[in-house]
Simulated assay, not measured.
Amino acid sequence: MYEHYFQCPYCWEEISMLLDPSIQRQLYVEDCEICCNPIEINSQFNNNNELQSFQANNLEQ
Rank of each mutant, 00 (worst) to 15 (best):
M1K: 13
M1N: 11
Y2H: 12
Y2D: 10
E3K: 15
E3R: 15
H4S: 07
Y5G: 14
Y5R: 14
F6G: 02
F6Q: 01
F6V: 02
Q7P: 04
C8Q: 01
C8A: 03
P9I: 01
P9W: 00
Y10H: 01
Y10E: 00
W12D: 07
E13A: 06
E13G: 02
E14H: 06
E14A: 08
I15A: 00
S16V: 07
M17P: 00
M17R: 09
M17S: 10
M17A: 09
L18S: 11
L18W: 10
L18N: 10
L18K: 11
L18E: 14
L19F: 04
D20A: 10
D20W: 05
S22C: 15
S22W: 13
S22I: 15
S22L: 15
I23A: 13
Q24S: 13
R25S: 15
R25N: 15
Q26H: 10
Q26R: 06
Q26P: 03
L27E: 09
Y28T: 09
Y28S: 04
C32A: 06
E33Y: 08
E33R: 07
E33K: 10
E33I: 14
C35H: 05
C36I: 09
N37A: 12
N37G: 11
N37I: 09
I39W: 02
I39T: 01
I39G: 03
I39N: 02
E40C: 12
E40S: 05
E40Y: 05
I41D: 00
N42L: 12
N42A: 11
S43L: 01
S43G: 04
N46M: 05
N46Y: 04
N46D: 01
N47K: 12
N47V: 11
N48C: 08
N49F: 08
N49W: 12
E50N: 04
E50Q: 03
Q52H: 10
Q52F: 08
Q52T: 05
S53Q: 06
S53L: 04
F54V: 03
F54D: 01
Q55C: 11
N57R: 11
N58E: 09
N58L: 12
E60A: 12
Q61P: 06
